[in-house]
Design a protein around this nucleic acid. Structure first.
Lengths: 195, 195
DNA sequence: AAGATAAGCGAATGTTCGTTCGTTTATAAT
DNA sequence: ATTATAAACGAACGAACATTCGCTTATCTT
């Protein structure tokens, strides 16, 4: 018998994301996807149950990757300022290294395709939660409802990322998020959080 | 001769937004839209050139409305803290009063349908820009690159709004953005910005 | 009241959609 | 080398798509 070709599945995934980013969800058809991946439409159905399954898997895998990447070199025990800055830098690197995945993720997250029922306690969330608890216990930062903490600690970062990516796809590139500017914003955020 | 019926155009707009929010851009077909608005498909083409024109107009009108609403009771001359808080409250009211428009706007903004070429200097942008300039001149806040200012001043707000709206469409509603919590976040933001 | 004009209709166009099916082909296991 | 198995194919399915066209109808102007 013949085995599934992981490489083929990867090409399908990649081309799907490219098409969605370029043309939106209505721009992704199974036949166009097959053509761009140089396979038969029916072959897609060997690797994915159907269109919806393909989209869901793409999203879940992308999200899992982002969470894993964000934890690179991270340990919940490190000092707060150092840890949050590492998070910012990790995320910045992962997003700018391959913006297509971020665009796709954002598009999916803001669409009705997302079913936000099960916010499962991932390894990632456990890590971050412990990290914050430690920092509060050490009195490095003030105790806050987690949503408010998240809004202050990451809201400005993602706003800057979006400015950066939006402008980089425009004619007159006016804003580029250098590490220096990121640091400037980061220090303002730290000013908020320090107890 | 017979005049165009503004009310009919409004129904088309409203139903289109409802369909997009519920089913995404691929869930909006001209025939389904016609049926839900109880008109003939061809009638839509009296009010909009085609599907793309409909979507673009919906977005531009929604954005214009948001900008207008955000300026209610606002004057660029008022003290900074008061002015920024008014902005937060205006936006909160407009979004929660009719979340569908916000969902649609976010979905469109994160899709490739958006063509971010012309960031025209709207009345809105002029107002905000002048407001910030005044505050800096009065030394109420520190001078910052406008993107960093925007990220700090509004990033946390929109992150909270998304938590609020996401959770309110879920089974176990865990987070609700009360005015008290919004104020708590706001004060942290002010701590960042104050010079 | 009459005429002119554009709103409004529903059927029809050709195209593209997601998915399936019968067949062929490659390859792991024997 | 043979066989069994599942990958891979391309044509084909009916359904749904955006848009148009010839016609009817409502209403503003005279």
């Amino acid at each position: 018998m013949r085995l599934k070709d992981d490489n083929k599945a990867q090409i399908i995934r990649r081309k799907a994301i490219e098409m969605i980013v370029k043309e939106g969800f209505d721009g992704l058809s199974m036949q166009k996807l097959a053509k761009s991946a140089k396979i038969s439409p029916s072959t897609i159905y060997i690797y994915f149950e159907n269109r919806e399954d393909l989209l869901n898997k793409l999203f879940m895998e992308t999200e899992a990757d982002f969470e894993k990447d964000a934890l690179r070199n991270f340990d919940p025990g490190i000092p707060f300022e150092e840890g949050l800055w590492l998070q910012w830098k990790n995320r910045y690197k992962n997003i700018t290294k391959d913006p297509l995945r971020f665009y796709f993720h954002e598009q999916f997250r803001n669409s009705p395709l997302i079913k936000h029922k099960d916010i499962k306690q991932t390894e990632f969330r456990k890590n971050i939660s412990q990290f914050v608890k430690n920092a509060v216990a050490r009195k490095e930062i003030a105790a806050l409802p987690q949503e408010i903490f998240w809004a202050i600690a990451y809201g400005p970062f993602y706003t800057l990322i979006k400015f950066h990516l939006d402008e980089s796809t425009m004619a007159g590139t006016k804003f580029s998020l250098t590490e220096q500017k990121m640091k400037q914003a980061f220090q303002l955020v730290m000013k908020s959080l320090k107890s």
